[in-house]
Amino acid sequence: MKNIDVAVVGAGPAGLSAAIEAAKYGVKTLVIDENRQPGGQLFKQIHKFFGSQAQMAGIRGYEIGKKLLASAQMHHVQMHLNTQVIGIDETNTLAVIKDHHYSEIKARKIILCCGAAEKTLAFPGWTLPGIMGAGAAQTLVNIHRVLPGEKILMVGSGNVGLIVTYHFLQAGANVKAVIDAAHSIKGYGVHAAKIKRAGIPIMLGCTINRAIGKKQVEKAELIRVDERFNKIPSTEIQMDVDTICLAVGLSPSTELARMAGCKLYYDAKLGGYIPLINQDMQTTLEDIYAAGDMTGIEEASIAMEEGRIAGISCAVGLGYCPDTATSQRVVQNIRLNLSQLRSYKPN
């Protein structure tokens, strides 16, 4: 069994930020991630981020990822990649599997930064190949450099739907339309404006009725909906597509928090069940912290700030910060920044 001060589960923006902050105080920190590359979903974010110039605004997501990795290395954060955490117990022991081999890691504090998974939308034909999460298509295009298809329909006008549509255009793909059952655009107007001025139709009050195809999707049948989202009969239209991307939200990945026994609660706006945390990002269990999308679906810029708070809180909790006044001040600044980042959400 390996022993460590702080184990961080997840090497995305929250996990890396948490690990870097803890390691800055000399805490022995280990990040565990099931992927072969660290960075979570940052490396497929090829657009410049909003936010404050004082943080990482105006920088493309993958560049932020590179900066975090460099910083983690500089502060001697250990990293176990290609390693799945499959269990957690009341002694703060993580059960992990790497290349089919089992081992255990015991930590004094654990920070869960497990991220989120894409939600789906069930409609007749939704399981046909060619129908996938918008984030999945974004991974294909920006990481693997393969287009998901030739004729793409995007379902969902939130920021993910709008941004991924723009990424498709950058990769030279043909996007037939963005649709949303809502009667107004859900994401930021500027993201909508970018694809609108490229001629991509944004169809509101419109949902997908069914997908048609044998071995893969060949057509999407769309239908109009009224203000209460009831389908309006006889308004079906069919569209030739070979790809349907679903950008219908994300759901926090809370399995480990649940297994550990952290108290969860339901918050529809934040994406569903999430661990109850205090302002130090501590869950209802003393030694378990959580940050990033698994504590509520928000922006990567917010995940990074939450992670930093969790990292500092663990360092303080383990007695690595004799100068508590200074660390308090740092945390206060992060909280202030968080409240500004959270002060506006479209719709």
Partner: peptide, 22 residues
Amino acid sequence: KACRYTPKNQEPRGIFCCIGRC
């Protein structure tokens, strides 16, 4: 685009999440 066929109904399935979750 078809990675597998389902056990019961032999329906094709392809990529859905592309990050190893689904």
